[in-house]
Every structure is written in structure tokens, then in C-alpha cells.
Nucleic acid binder design. Sequence first.
DNA 1: CGGGATCCGCACGGATACTG
DNA 2: CAGTATCCGTGCGGATCCCG
Lengths: 113, 113
Amino acid sequence: MTKDITPDLCPADPILRVMTGRWKTHIVYLLGEDGPTRFTAIQRRLPPISPKVLTSRLRELEQDGLVWRVQEETIPPKVTYGLTELGLEVHAILKSFDAVGRKLKSAPPDSPA
Amino acid sequence: MTKDITPDLCPADPILRVMTGRWKTHIVYLLGEDGPTRFTAIQRRLPPISPKVLTSRLRELEQDGLVWRVQEETIPPKVTYGLTELGLEVHAILKSFDAVGRKLKSAPPDSPA
DNA sequence: CGGGATCCGCACGGATACTG
DNA sequence: CAGTATCCGTGCGGATCCCG
């Protein structure tokens, strides 16, 4: 979002831009693992996240079509978030990153291709 | 980098954090497609990027073990960048994103899983 | 040619307080 | 419970100029 002047070089850029930031990957991953979850429950699983930020990130993910939101006008209110089909696809991709992710820790030496 | 307090929720988070920002995906993708490339050549392919920013991103990618750097002390100097094996793996992943990437454009309506 | 130095704007993110 | 409002710090990114 924000600015998108960059030409169509890397095909992965759009999705990565959608997933970027401190929390979005965790939110999508969490909703994928646990299924539909309520606002406060999400917040409790993401240690120090303020409600403002959580709301903001959820709105963005909603706008990008990864997350849906259902609100029950009860008292007290009850709002549940979950993954759309697109969100589920992204969640699957996130899990597939696991293998490569570990290799980052060991910071391998140079190996000129 | 910078801060990494977030718990180990999403396994993809570390790599995504490494790839985040306006340029990194494009840099890695470009080096993967074209092979080892010189500084100015990279800059010319990433339209409006300042040398400072390009240097900065390349240094970070180098530190994270995705990119290597060789410098020939000639006059004028000649510096070439390329992907390490880890970088090549990431490049492959970036390409695999292509399919899901297209689905973002059409911004599909909600489909509660 | 391949940077480094400097200045600056802005969006992301954190903290706290308040509300329907 | 699920937000909204406000303030503020910081890091990314851009622009420009200078250097070995």
C-alpha cells in the first residue's frame, strides 16, 4: 500500500507488501492455525500489541481480502475474525517457509552460486 | 531486524522481515533472474532508487546471507553482487508467489472459509 | 564507478486513556 | 468487549552533494 510506483519486477512483491509489518504474518498464521478467533483472543496471543494497532492491521488485511469480520450486536459485543480462501492460501505459504526460515539463523558463509 | 521480541508464532516471519521494504524483493529477484550484476546496473533496473538506499539494502541482504559482494580494486572500481545459495532459495520462493499474487488484484469478496 | 555524509518527511508502531 | 482518540518515537526511504 501507501506507494506502489515500483515496476513489475518481482512478482512476489504485492503479496509481501500486504504481509509486511510487525504483526500481519502472525495474525494470518494464528487465524490459520486456530481458526476464527475473537478480537481479545487474538490480542492475548500476540503479546504486547495495542488494540489500536491490532484493529489497524485487521482492517488492512480485511481490505486486502485475506480476512473476514463478523460482528454480533450483542451486549457485550462479539466480533470474530477469520481467514478468507485467499487468506488460507497465504497461510499455507507461510507454513512452507519454515524450512528456509531456519537457515537464516545459522547465517551461512558466502557461496557464490 | 532492529527489534525481534515477537514470539515464535509465524515461522515465516524471520524471512519476511529480511525481505521487507520497498526494494529488497526486487533486488533479490533481479539478481536471481539476471545473475551477478554490478552496482550501477542494478540501480538502472530499479528506476528511482538512490545509491545510498541501494547500498544500504545490499549491505543488509549481505549481512543476512542472501547476497555476496566482490570488489575489484581497478580504476574505475568494479563491484559485483550476486545471490548466495540461500539467496537462490529465497529467489525460488519469490517466483512461486506469482500465482497467489494475481489474486490480490481482483480483491475477491468474503468467503468465510 | 561505487559509494559515504547529511538532511528531511512520513508511515509504522507503541503507550495511554476513553467510549458505545 | 471491541474498539477509537491522541501523542510521540523511530526507522525506512528519498534527495542532494561530495569523495577515493
